[in-house]
Design a protein around this nucleic acid. Structure first.
Length: 885
RNA sequence: GGACGUUUAGCUCAGCUGGGAGAGCAUCUGCUUGACGUGCAGAGGGUCAGCGGUUCAAGUCCGUUAACGUCCACCA
């Protein structure tokens, strides 16, 4: 590949992400660097032992635009995949999109409505044509948006939940489960959305606390001996009541059980039954039972063999069994019925009540429980292995606490309603024979009934829940049901990255599907993240209009700044707030690195720079190399623990503080002298190390800089991840540099307190027990502590000097005109008091026998050292005070 | 009703397996130091929600209370 960066080694003063990002992304894509292949199959494989690292993308819906949730999710995935790729894994990030059955269909219906067309006008075939056109248009849009983020997906392997392969997998799974008796069709009470006009699963119902009215009704006893009082929030369903229930232990009503009451208005006799489902102390302790329109009542109905009378139709209107109320909407009917009950004296009273109402998670319509003929997956047998696998640690959650949520859901799971009365989706592969009534479920479309031979077959009209196909994603995308090399090599996948909000929808379903079909968990680790909220902590939503468009942020601040923002300042599983201040801070950080690179390039000029380290290293070289070495270890360690935020923080601190504020400054005087060459080599070496460690987080700017610097190889994204090397560990030099840096900081501090401008340079006299160290660091004082000269010795007697005391040295700076002896004395005394207090506290610990006895030797030793340092400092302070008078 | 999370500097949040509190932003003071003012050098600011316990040692572990938040359940 052509090196895409500027050739002239001159970078502009400000980093301009807009100019860089698209170019770099194209370079990667054209280079084929995102592509991953199975290893170990062929003898010609140059790298047969390469270990796979696999992530399958949570496929974004083709309805959607990239939002902050996607940006977070995909940033985390890209960080992991880029890091593992650099570590030498065969890293596959498999991308794709989801057909999102119900959501997409709703969008298309909405678009059609604007043209004044109903989907029925188009017919199934015509509608599906529109849907595929939609998919072509919006499916590619979201993909291009993912690219803007820098996602290093293997686009050659892009999949779609309704493409041929995935559809084949869906059909195969359906047939297998059916043949095993794990998929069945039956009349059950299900959640019905009267707007989407389809069934939805339990997971798709959202509950919301709602203010409502509790109507107390009077149901007269059939024998005229009195009445029972009961309460309901849904009086219109009384038209479908087939019993009244009380608790079997409720003495108040024991005498009524087995007798009949007359259903008001309908004037029908219905029995009084006893069932433990009734709560004695809620309401009046009497419940009307409407098996056709309430989930619990349905269960009661089954236990007591009650008939179910459906009075509401699939559009939310009263049907013919509702008598004169037929044709009214639920709310209209409620009003009318309450009026009539009141007129006839059946309404005792009303009271306000706050209770939960189930809403459709797509459109927010109140969900109607409804009896209907649907397809279900029998969950108990599938849930058990999924629970077991996590208990055995075959899959683990990060953070671990989400395992509890996972277990709770699976342990209480009910059968999964998978049929949807929609057109966009995988059509259920079931046919019904209109002659003998046989149901045929098969891998191939049947042309005649296997039982009676009739050709009058009709395919089930429904499609599958969109999550049915998503559940197969980790293996359907790798070629299953065929035994492809990809499937063998990349499955089970390594890490699944997703938000806690779709654990139920997706994670559990992938788990049991993977275990059932593949016999192995679909992924080793589930890395859960939280939600991105707005600056006020509110969920970003369309209706609130508080959403922040990631693409706008990328345009203004750059993808790297956005990624850094999302990767930092938050711990796994927790929500985070998005603020412009944060992105701005990381935009500044990117610019900081950019300018560090500029500095290096400026100093390289035309000279050739060796990529290896020089043979002779200075103290500051060893210090920064040693720090970089530990940084590599720390970043790696935290990535392994999925503590991306901590890894980011360490990188940030090292780059800004150690490298830019110290090492680069320290290198400046050297770059003017004989040791310039070795300085350049160390600068390039450290910068390269930084770029590597930072690359997973900020891929664009790091690649751009890397290409500009002297380098080896084609692309940073394929370079080796830095590993800790014992040969680069220099603890002694680190300590020495610390002494020097402490002294420099102390001088700066004093000068700032006295408001001495940098332009006012002054000689510095250092008295220290570490003369060698300070001699090596002499030049740094001139540069970083504005010293006009540096002398290291003992017993300097300077009249009117400022004394600065560290644990290792006393520094004297003659600034007679600025020194007020009394103030100086007071300050030194303050410092003395301070040091004394600290010393006392350390001594208190050391004088405690149980501390010395029980604390680890390491801790005791460092306490002793601390005490020693403080004693030293105290004595130096004493001397300075004595010298003052 | 059950489970979980959060509570640390003015604001937003880190602080991993207990060893003596950090960052960014904001505030204040200096700075035309030849990479960067999207910058440099400094400063101020915290009884780590309350209470109790374990420990030589607690922001960190245990218990408890409170406030806020989330999920599950669904008492009609």
């Amino acid at each position: 590949m052509e090196n895409p960066a500027q050739k002239d080694r001159q970078l502009p003063k400000k980093y301009n992400p807009g100019e860089v990002e698209d170019r770099i992304y194209r370079f990667w894509e054209e280079g084929g660097y995102f592509h991953a292949v199975p290893h170990g199959k062929s003898s010609k494989d140059p790298d047969p032992d390469k270990t796979p690292y696999t992530i399958v993308i949570p496929p974004p819906n083709i309805t959607g635009e990239l939002h902050m949730g996607h940006a977070l999710d995909n940033t985390l995935q890209d960080i992991l995949i880029r890091w593992r790729r650099m570590q030498g894994y065969e890293a596959l990030w498999l991308p794709g999109t989801d057909h999102a059955s119900i959501a997409t269909e709703a969008k298309i219906v909405e678009a059609l409505a604007k043209e004044g067309i109903k989907k029925e006008d188009l017919g199934r075939k015509g509608f599906l044509e529109r849907a595929w056109a939609w998919k072509e248009r919006y499916g590619s849009r979201i993909i291009s948006q993912l690219k803007k983020l820098g996602s290093s997906c293997d686009w050659e392997r892009e999949r779609f939940t309704m493409d041929e392969g995935c559809s084949r997998a869906v059909r195969e799974v359906f047939v297998r489960l059916y043949e095993k008796g794990l998929i069945y069709r039956g009349e059950r009470i299900i959640n019905w959305c009267t707007t989407c006009h389809t069934s939805i699963s339990d997971a798709e119902v959202e509950f919301e606390e709602t203010d409502s009215v509790f109507y107390h009704l009077r149901y007269p006893l059939a024998d005229g001996s009195g009445y029972l009082e009961l309460a309901t929030t849904r009086p219109e369903t009384m038209l479908g009541d087939t019993a009244v229930a009380v608790h079997p232990d409720d003495e108040r009503y024991a005498a009524f059980v087995g007798r009949n009451v007359i259903l008001p208005i309908v004037n029908k006799e219905i029995p009084v039954i006893a069932d433990t489902y009734v709560e004695m102390d809620f309401g009046t302790g009497v419940v009307k039972i409407t098996p056709a329109h309430d989930t619990n009542d349905f269960e009661v109905g089954l236990r007591h063999n009650l008939p179910a009378v459906t009075v509401i139709d699939d559009r939310g209107y009263m049907n013919e069994l509702a008598g004169k109320y037929q044709g009214m909407s639920i709310m209209e009917c409620r009003k009318a019925i309450v009026k009539e009950l009141e007129e006839q004296g059946y309404l005792i009273k009303t009271e306000p009540i706050r209770h939960n109402v189930g809403l459709c998670y797509r459109c927010g319509t109140v969900v109607e429980p409804r009896i209907s003929l649907q397809w279900f997956v029998k969950m108990k047998p599938l849930a058990a292995p999924a629970i077991e696998a996590v208990k055995k640690g075959e899959t683990r959650f990060v953070p671990e606490r989400f395992e509890k949520v996972y277990f709770h859901w699976l342990e209480n799971i009910k059968d999964w309603c998978i049929s949807r009365q929609l057109w966009w989706g995988h059509r259920i592969p079931a046919w019904y024979c209109s002659d003998c009534g046989e149901t045929i479920v098969s891998r191939k479309d049947p042309d005649k009934c296997p039982k009676c031979g009739s050709a009058k077959l009709a395919q089930d009209e429904d499609v599958l829940d969109t999550w049915f196909s998503s559940a197969l994603w980790p293996f359907s995308t790798l070629g299953w049901p065929d035994k492809t090399p990809e499937l063998e090599y990349f499955y089970p996948t390594s890490t699944l990255v997703t938000g806690y909000d779709i654990i139920f929808f997706w994670v559990v379903r992938m788990m049991f599907s993977g275990l059932e079909q593949m016999g192995q968990v679909p992924f080793r680790t589930v890395f859960i993240h939280g939600l991105v909220r707005d600056a006020l902590g509110r969920k970003m939503s369309k209706s609130l209009g508080n959403g922040i468009d990631p693409l706008e942020i990328i345009k203004e601040y750059g993808a790297d700044a956005l990624r850094f923002t999302l990767a930092t300042g938050n711990s796994p599983g927790n929500d985070m707030r998005f603020t412009y201040e944060k992105v701005e801070a990381y935009r500044n950080f990117a610019n900081k690195i950019w300018n560090a690179a500029r500095f290096i390039l400026l100093n390289i000029g035309d000279s050739e720079v060796e990529l290896s380290l020089p043979d002779v290293l200075e103290i500051e070289d060893k210090w920064i190399l040693s720090r970089l070495n530990s940084l590599a270890a720390e970043v790696t360690e935290n990535l392994e623990k999925f503590e991306l935020g901590i890894a980011v923080q360490k990188l940030y601190d090292f780059i800004w503080d150690n490298f830019c504020d110290w090492y680069i400054e320290l290198s400046k005087p050297r770059l003017q002298g004989e040791k310039a060459d070795s300085a350049r080599r160390v600068l390039v070496y450290v910068m390269t190390g930084i770029l590597k460690l930072l690359h997973p987080f900020m891929p664009f700017i790091t690649e751009e800089i890397w290409q500009s610097l002297p380098h080896q190889g084609e692309t940073l994204m394929k370079s080796d991840w830095p590993v800790y090397q014992e040969s680069l560990n220099f603890p002694a030099e680190e300590r020495e540099m610390e002494r020097i840096m402490e002294a420099i900081r102390a001088i700066r501090n004093r000068r700032a307190e006295m408001n001495v401008p940098p332009s006012r340079k002054a000689p510095v006299f250092i008295e220290t027990a570490f003369a060698d160290t300070f001699r090596r660091g002499k030049i740094f004082f001139e540069r970083l502590a504005w010293a006009s000269s540096v002398e290291i010795g003992a017993g300097f007697d300077i009249d009117g000097a400022v004394s600065i005391v560290t644990a290792d040295a006393t520094i004297k700076i003659p600034m007679r005109e600025l020194v007020d002896k009394d103030a100086e004395r007071a300050r030194l005394n303050r410092e003395k008091e301070n040091a004394k207090k600290q010393l006392d506290s350390v001594l208190a610990r050391l004088n405690n026998p149980s501390f010395v006895e029980k604390a680890p030797a390491e801790v005791v030793r460092s306490a002793r050292e601390e005490a020693e340092r403080l004693r030293e400092k105290l004595s130096l302070l004493e001397q300075s005070l004595a010298g003052l008078s």
